[in-house]
């Protein structure tokens, strides 16, 4: 329940405050969003398997975001920023897809 409230609050706040992403964070925000989405989809899957844990969710969320941002930062420093972001997005995308597939199997049994 609380996460859904959070989701709504976040969207509303985003529309009301009309934030702009600060320039230094610009390369990291998209990757961080994908990483966080990965954590959220994983959490939904765990919820469906009735083994959801707040602690695991919070830690995986934060660590996902941090690691993704760190990789992009490292990539930028090494001069392979765009390639590494692509790689991170591919990996996270694969994870999101597999988790989504698991959720689908639970919900539709297909």
């Amino acid at each position: 329940m609380i996460p859904i409230i959070g989701l709504v609050v976040g969207i509303v706040a985003g529309f009301i405050l009309q934030p702009t992403v600060p320039a230094p964070l610009e390369p990291y925000v998209p990757i961080a969003i994908i990483a966080a989405l990965d954590a959220v989809v994983g959490a939904v899957r765990a919820l469906g398997e009735k083994r959801f844990d707040d602690r695991v969710f919070v830690i995986s969320f934060v660590s996902n975001v941090l690691i993704a941002a760190a990789m992009v930062y490292l990539g930028d420093q090494l001069g392979v920023g765009s390639q590494l972001s692509t790689g991170v997005i591919v990996v996270l995308g694969i994870r999101i897809f597999s988790n989504a597939a698991a959720i689908r199997r639970q919900v539709f049994h297909a």
Binding site: I2, P3, I5, G6, L7, V8, V9, G10, I11, A13, G14, F15, Q18, P19, T20, V21, E26, V29, P30, A32, I33, A36, L37, V40, A43, D54, R55, F57, V58, F61, V62
Partner: peptide
């Protein structure tokens, strides 16, 4: 321990939604 963690999870989701909206507008 669970209660604040649940709140934290909510806050994180809110932050995610906020970031998505912000990036979207960007």
């Amino acid at each position: 321990v669970g209660r604040p963690l649940q709140l934290l999870a909510g806050v994180l989701v809110a932050a995610l939604a906020f970031a998505i909206v912000a990036q979207w507008r960007q």
